[in-house]
Every structure is written in structure tokens, then in C-alpha cells.
Nucleic acid binder design. Structure first.
Length: 834
DNA sequence: GCCACAACTTAGCAGGGTGATT
DNA sequence: AATCACCCTGCTAAGTTGTGGC
């Protein structure tokens, strides 16, 4: 049955999707040096495939599912789209602005009057916390009325720091602290307000001070060498050379693609100024003088006194000040990344074809500001103009610009603590919680559809299984000019291997070129499906050849509004966390042990989501150090046991046995260890002696003679002799007051310390490549943590840093009745019966 | 029906700050 | 007080999702 059914499985239309990228060798190290030096050469490889009709022949369009159901699932709000045209491009935007300006007052509220009224009222109510005098009751209809008080409010806010700046440091410090506290108290608690978000208009009034540009380049004049000779460069060429020089010792700087891309962009810059020398060979470039200069500068920076450092910091905060906050509908909100990204070399991850290219300096002409119609327009850099000013009420960004490497748009948004971010964060978790209600049905459906006749349905069901079970990402297709990474829908033949009877081995590079390597036992039908799909598409091709993230998400949204592949990840993560936390937490544990459980649960989630971090360079050393520490303690213990035997021969049998159990104390090691102990002891005594002398001299007294030191070191010599004697006789010299009980007590203490250190090592080893922070920040519902802390008397500060507490303010006050994640619904990893 | 674009979330890394340890 | 490991934060790259125009 199993084999014959595969005939039916083959769809009517047999299509192939050739991979656009060349098949890259499996090199999982993102920085591996084995790149093809010439990308044009590499690219030509892509045609090599057993299928002659490769990419060019097979337009992507063909892949599309022809079964357009025509049922355009659109949200209800689309009906009033015409009210607020979505500006897709700032050039277009100008036209819109004009229209808007002309029709503003009326247009704003047409068709959404009631909603907007509510919203406006609500935002006025909440603006109380602005620490300003009470305002007159709002007149919703007339927006121009808002204008004056708003501007005034803005000024008031600004005035506060200005006044302070005139006073001296201490005052400033104290007051800023005060202001911060006040701000914290006055936080706008949007989560206590009614639900108002209609999802389209995000603001009525928006003011901010634009963006902060990086300082102009200041040439350092350090001459790099070309062909062994020092060369002088134009400031611009020097700047770009410096970008590279700073990286020569890093993995980027050693990456041939990075070098090549940098070099060709640099050559373009060099050509701009005739005075620059002709530089045609990368090999002849010596960036080391610049590199060393930067190292010295770094060192100098470190050496600055506390006061100097403080001053630099203060100057920095002063410059930043105007950009820190925006005013949204009368509320002060923190801005996130108000700094324009400085120029530099693009540090693409993994095998990014464009890594090393020059990321050019951004000028005001490239920057578009999103502001309220009534807001004052911040001043651009002197002698410059803004690229544009738009009033997109549907968007939350404050400024944007296009970056020159990939042509993507960069945005300035509000900070994570803002109500916009907080609201959408909460919505995300609410959506995931809502999935609980539907997940059973969804699982039942896809389980059935695993052997659907229609290939597309079957692929979709299989993909859903993987997304649900393994928390894979959706996996959009990527272009030639990006690193070759995949997610669920874009998995290729070589990324999944079959291990009968029903184990799949996943091995691919995911987001950020992080390797996903996992061996999973799956439903027999899933195994069978992957086998069929693979057979059909052949090597180098996408396994789900008639599935796109779009079609998948469209299907998902038919189950639940807003359901997409990504929601499963959030759902799985939070659910797993709650489940693990419940399982691991013991009521009578100490706070420390509870935290251990918390972190373990967190780690489970991080593993599920494959959140990795690079193992720190000296991780091995660190572990070795800990192991050495353990061995040293064991050695101590061994000696204690010996002493017991010496004191009481009756104990011999049991203690000897105990000693036998631990056999990783080799004689060789002991000898090394003893030598080490002696060396360290001598060092200790010597440095102590020297320091004491320095002190004496500085106090105007005479230094102690060398003799004194020798005298002191004699004690160590004595130790050494003692060790030798001990080795020869096997007898340890006992302290006069030693008793068996005392020694036993010491052993118990050592036992504990050894155990603790072992745990520490284990914990470090386990966690060396798992990053807990990403899941904590993005996937685990913070209310679970808040509630857990409350319930188990663990201070929240132990699990959330200050920034996290700020970000998750909305979650900090969950009441005990909040229905937690585990109480309803099924876990993510439960296998669905066929 | 596809693609490009837009907007927003998610991600790891570098480097600085901080707190523990000696 | 110095040192060191580690934690936090800022940065920006790299995803996902939605939309509109051709």
C-alpha cells in the first residue's frame, strides 16, 4: 500500500524549481575562508545541474499555485482605505502632502468619525501625565485647535533641561535623575485604557527632532603603505582605508569576499582624487600602520581619568538630548535609533556576496521625515535639505532613508519602551494565545491532509507539521545577491536527509546563517511525504516546490484572523516555557535554585528556536580552568582522606575505596599541580613584598632589604621539602589539633564545593552556544515570568534587567487570574495521531 | 499573479559597563 | 584597587508579512 500510493501522490503537473543560487558547499562557519574568489565564476556554476532547463528557462511565475480562489481575504478596515492613502514612495508623498494639506481638516475624520473620536478622546485623557497645566476640553473636530497647546507642551518639556544646562554638573545630575523618576511614575499606562487600536491610523499629532547625523570625518594623517612605501590619501580615501584597517585582525578582514568588495569600492573612491596614488593590487596594501594607530588610540581612551570619561559622556548626552523623545498625540515617547547609521563597510553575515562593500555616508537629502502636519520641521545639517517630509498617519516610523548596499529602507522608530511597541508586542502574545483555541483543529486538519491527493495541499500540510513541531521560520525565497539561507518553505533537497524508518535529519543554514542541525523522529506520513517530494524535485531544488510563504499564510489566516507561520513560533516558545517552568519549579527551592529552573526552562525555548551564540574564544580555556580547579579540590580531598587514615587506621578501608573511585588524579598532574602551587606561593609573597616596599618608599621610609624577602620565601622552600617528604613516605604531616571529625567536616565542605563547581562547568558547557536572550526578548510572554515571580517570591529583577522591565511594563502587573499558557490548549510537541 | 517595495519584528555581535573576586 | 569575566545595550543585518502596481 505504502509504495503504490506514491503513484497517486504525484500531481498532474510536474514542475521543477531550480535553485537560483549556486549550490554552495556546506560550509557552516559564516566566516569560512573557502569562498570562490571570483563570484562571476562561482555564479556560472548554477547552471550545472542535471536538468538542462535551469533557472532562466523556468520563470518563477510558473511556480505559482494556479488555484486562485479569488476570495480576497481583506480586513474590514480596507473599506476606508481611500481616506488615508498609503504613501508608498516619498516622491509620491509630496503629491499626497499637498492633497492632505488642502483637505486635511475634513478628510481626517470622514468615514471613521466615531472611531477617531474615541481615540482622540482617549489620547487626550491620557495626556494628563504630560506634567503640564490642565488643558481645555478637547475639541475633536478641529485639529488646528490642538496645535497651540501641543506646541506649548513641547516647549515646556524642552525648557526643563535647558534651564538646567546653565547650572553646574551636580545640579544637572540630580535633576536629570529626578526627571527620570518622574517620567517613570508618569508613564502612560496604555494597557489600562480601553482597547482603541483600529490598526490603521497610528497617530493624529506627531512631533520630533529628526535624526542625529554622525560627525564629519576627521583625517588622522597616518600613512598606510603601498608596495612598502608610505602613501598619502585624500580624506575620503583615508576614511575608507581606515574602515578596513580597523578590521584586519577580525574574521571579516580576513574574508576574501570582504577584501575584494572593499577593495573595489575603495578603488572607486581613490579615483575621485587625482592626487591619490594608483593602487591596483590589494596584496601590496599594508594597512597595519593605521591599525596600530587605532590600537594606540583605544588604549589612550582607556587610560583617561574618570573625570575625563565623565565629561565625554556628558557631552554625548547633551548632543543626544533633543532626539531622545518624540511627542505622539501629546504624549512624550522615547525614540529608539535616532542616529543615522555611520558610514562603514557592510558586515554581511555568512556567505553574503556583498559583504565588505562600502556603506556610504547618509546625507539629509536622503532622509525622509514623518511628522504631523502641524509639527515644526527640524533643521537639517547646515547647508542641506531634507529629502522629504511626509505625514503618514498609518506608519510608526519617524524617519527613513535608503541604504546603498541592498537598497533597503532603514527606519527610525520609537524605543521598545514606547506604547506603540508595547502594544504591538502585547498583541503578538495575545494572538499567540488565541492560537490555543484553534490549534487542535489546525492540527487535526493538517494531519489528515498529510495524505491529501492534491500535492499542494499535501506539501502545505507537511510544512505546517514542521513549523508546528519544530518552530521553523516560514522561509521566504532569497535572491542571488544575498546569503544562501533557508526556512521551512525554502528548504532544499540537500537540507533534509531521510533515516528510515521515520527520522529526518535537518541540516541547513537559517537566518543569520546559523546552522540548524536536528534529528527528528516524525510521523510516518511526514517521512513518506518528504521522501516523495525529494524524489520529485531532485537535488538542489526546493522540497516544497508548490508552496510559498504567501500561500501558506493565506491558508493559516483562514483559521484565525492574523494567523501566520510566525505565530506558531511565538506560541510554541511561550507554551514550552510555561510547561517547563511548571515542571521544574519546586516550591521549597531556594530563590537561587528557582532561578536555575527558570533558566533551564528558558534554555529549552532557546534550543527549540535554535538561538545560538558563537562560543567565546576562550571558552575552552575557561572550562579547562574550572576543571583544574575541580582537580585541585579533589587533590585536597585526597590528602584529607589520607590524613584521616593516618589518624585512625580503622577508617582505612572505606577511605581507600573512596579514593579509588576518583582516578583522574594522575601522579603527573599532582606533580605539576604541586609545582604550580609553589610557583604561585612564591609569586604571591614576592609581589606582596614589592608592594609593601613601594608603599614604604612613597611614605618616605626605607625599603626593606632583599634579605627579608629571601627569609619569607624560605617558608615556601619548607613547603617544597615537606611535599617531597610526603611523596617519599606517603605520610602527611598532621596539624596538632587535627581530629577525624574535623577532617571529615572539611571533606564534606569540599564535596559541596566540588559539586557546585561541577554544576557551574556543566551549566557553562550546556549554555556555551545557546543564547537565552533572544527568546526572552521576543518569544516568551513576559506575563508568564511576571506571574511566576509573584507566585514564587522571586524578585522580578532577577529575571528581567532594567531594559526588559521597561519594555515589558505592560506585563508587570498581571493579576493572578490571568489565564496562563499551560492551562488551556495542547502543547506544541505533542504528536498528532493519524 | 508576480514582483518590488514598505514596514515592522527578530537576530547575533561588539564593546562598554559592572559587579564579583582576589 | 585592580583585574577579570560576564552581562547588558546599542547596533544593524536579516528575517516576516502585507500591499499595490504592472
Amino acid at each position: 500500500m505504502a509504495s503504490s500510493s506514491s503513484e497517486d501522490d504525484i500531481p498532474l503537473m510536474k514542475r521543477k524549481k531550480q535553485v537560483k543560487n549556486e549550490h554552495k558547499g556546506r560550509s557552516y562557519s559564516p566566516r569560512s575562508a573557502e569562498q570562490t574568489p571570483d563570484p562571476t565564476q562561482a555564479r556560472s556554476k548554477s547552471v550545472i545541474g542535471e536538468d538542462e532547463s535551469s533557472d532562466e528557462e523556468m520563470p518563477l511565475a510558473k511556480r505559482a499555485n494556479s488555484k486562485s480562489n479569488g476570495k480576497h481575504i481583506k480586513s474590514e478596515d480596507s473599506s476606508d482605505d481611500d481616506n488615508v492613502p498609503l504613501v508608498s514612495h516619498w516622491k509620491h508623498a509630496f503629491a499626497c502632502i499637498i492633497i492632505r494639506l488642502l483637505t486635511k481638516k475634513k478628510k481626517k475624520y470622514i468615514g471613521k468619525e466615531s472611531q477617531t473620536r474615541e481615540k482622540a478622546a482617549y489620547s487626550w485623557k491620557s495626556s494628563l501625565y504630560l506634567q503640564t497645566k490642565k488643558r481645555p476640553a478637547p475639541k475633536v473636530e478641529d485639529s488646528s485647535d490642538d496645535e497651540k497647546p501641543l506646541a506649548k507642551v513641547r516647549k515646556d518639556i524642552k525648557k526643563v533641561p535647558k534651564v538646567k544646562a546653565e547650572d553646574e554638573k551636580k545640579v544637572v545630575k540630580k535633576q536629570t535623575k529626578k526627571v527620570e523618576e518622574e517620567e517613570a511614575e508618569a508613564q502612560y499606562k496604555w494597557w489600562e485604557q480601553g482597547n482603541e487600536d483600529d490598526g490603521s491610523t497610528k497617530w493624529n499629532e506627531l512631533e520630533h527632532n529628526g535624526v542625529l547625523f554622525p560627525p564629519a570625518y576627521e583625517p588622522h594623517g597616518i600613512k598606510m603603505k603601498y608596495d612598502g612605501k608610505p602613501i598619502s590619501l585624500s580624506p575620503e580615501a583615508e576614511e575608507v582605508a581606515s574602515f578596513f584597517a580597523a578590521l584586519i585582525e577580525t574574521d571579516h578582514g580576513k574574508n576574501p569576499v570582504f577584501q575584494k568588495n572593499f577593495f573595489s569600492d575603495w578603488q572607486e573612491i581613490l579615483k575621485k582624487d587625482d592626487k591619490n596614488p594608483k593602487i591596483s593590487n590589494f596584496e601590496k596594501c599594508d594597512f597595519r600602520p593605521m591599525f596600530e594607530h587605532f590600537e594606540i588610540e583605544k588604549e589612550r581612551k582607556k587610560q583617561l581619568t574618570k573625570a575625563e570619561k565623565q565629561q565625554i559622556k556628558e557631552e554625548k548626552t547633551k548632543v543626544e538630548e533633543p532626539y531622545l523623545y518624540a511627542i505622539v498625540d501629546g504624549r512624550k515617547e522615547k525614540v529608539g535609533n535616532f542616529r543615522i547609521e555611520p558610514p562603514g563597510l557592510f558586515r554581511g553575515r555568512g556567505d553574503h556576496p556583498k559583504t565588505g562593500r562600502l556603506k556610504r555616508r547618509v546625507m539629509p537629502e536622503q532622509v525622509t521625515l514623518n511628522l504631523g502636519e502641524n509639527a515644526p520641521i527640524p533643521k537639517p545639517l547646515p547647508g542641506h535639505k531634507w529629502g522629504g517630509v511626509v505625514h503618514i498617519h498609518e506608519a510608526t516610523w519617524l524617519a527613513s532613508w535608503k541604504e546603498n548596499i541592498n537598497g533597503t529602507i532603514k527606519y527610525v522608530f520609537l524605543a521598545a519602551t514606547s506604547s506603540w511597541k508595547g502594544q504591538s508586542d502585547m498583541q503578538k502574545f495575545e494572538k499567540a494565545r488565541e492560537l490555543k483555541k484553534h490549534v487542535n483543529r489546525i492540527r487535526k486538519d493538517y494531519s489528515q491532509q498529510l495524505n491529501d491527493k492534491l500535492m499542494e495541499t499535501r506539501q502545505r500540510a507537511t510544512a505546517m507539521y514542521l513549523i508546528d513541531k519544530l518552530a521553523l521560520r516560514a522561509g521566504n525565497e532569497k535572491g542571488d545577491d544575498e546569503a544562501d539561507t533557508v526556512g521551512c518553505c525554502s528548504l532544499r533537497y540537500e537540507h533534509v536527509t531521510l533515516e528510515p524508518p521515520n527520522t529526518l535529519v535537518f541540516d541547513f543554514l537559517g537566518k543569520d546563517s546559523i546552522r540548524y542541525h536536528n534529528s527528528v523522529t516524525v510521523e510516518p506520513q511526514v517521512f513518506k511525504n518528504i521522501k516523495i517530494f525529494k524524489k520529485q524535485v531532485g537535488p538542489d531544488n526546493m522540497i516544497f516546490d508548490r508552496l510559498t510563504t504567501m500561500s501558506l499564510n493565506k491558508h493559516l489566516s483562514s483559521y484565525m484572523k492574523g494567523l501566520t507561520a510566525k505565530v506558531f513560533r511565538t506560541y510554541n516558545a511561550s507554551h514550552t516555557f510555561q510547561e517547563q517552568l511548571d515542571k521544574l519549579t519546586r516550591e521549597d527551592d531556594s530563590v537561587n535554585d528557582k532561578l536555575l529552573s527558570y533558566n533551564r526552562a528558558n534554555r529549552e525555548v532557546a534550543i527549540l528556536c535554535n538561538h545560538q551564540r558563537s562560543v567565546s574564544k576562550n571558552h575552552g580555556q575557561m572550562i579547562a580552568k574550572i576543571e583544574d580547579k575541580i582537580r585541585a579540590m579533589k587533590y585536597q580531598r585526597k590528602r584529607l582522606r589520607r590524613q584521616i587514615i593516618q589518624l585512625d587506621p580503622k577508617m582505612k578501608k572505606s577511605k581507600m575505596e573512596e579514593m579509588q573511585v576518583e582516578s583522574d588524579l594522575e601522579d603527573e598532574w599532582i606533580e605539576e599541580h604541586q609545582k604550580d602551587l609553589l610557583v604561585k606561593e612564591r609569586e604571591k609573597i614576592t609581589t606582596k613584598f614589592e608592594k609593601n616596599n613601594e608603599k614604604l618608599v612613597s611614605e618616605g621610609q626605607a625599603a626593606l632589604p632583599e634579605k627579608e624577602l629571601k627569609e619569607k620565601l624560605k617558608a615556601v622552600d619548607e613547603m617544597e621539602k615537606e611535599m617531597k617528604r610526603e611523596k617519599q613516605s606517603g605520610q602527611i604531616e598532621l596539624k596538632s589539633n587535627a581530629t577525624v571529625d574535623k577532617l571529615l567536616a572539611q571533606i564534606t565542605k569540599l564535596d559541596e564545593r566540588i559539586k557546585a563547581t561541577k554544576n557551574q562547568a556543566l551549566d557553562k558547557e550546556e549554555g556555551k552556544e545557546t543564547a537565552l536572550s533572544t527568546s526572552k526578548l521576543n518569544y516568551i510572554d513576559p506575563r508568564i515570568s511576571a506571574l511566576w515571580c509573584k507566585k514564587h517570591n522571586v524578585p522580578v529583577e532577577k529575571v528581567f534587567s532594567k531594559t526588559l522591565r521597561d519594555k515589558f511594563q505592560w506585563a508587570m502587573e498581571v493579576d493572578d487570574n490571568w489565564v496562563s499558557w499551560s492551562t488551556v490548549g495542547l502543547g506544541p510537541l505533542i504528536l498528532v495521531a493519524n
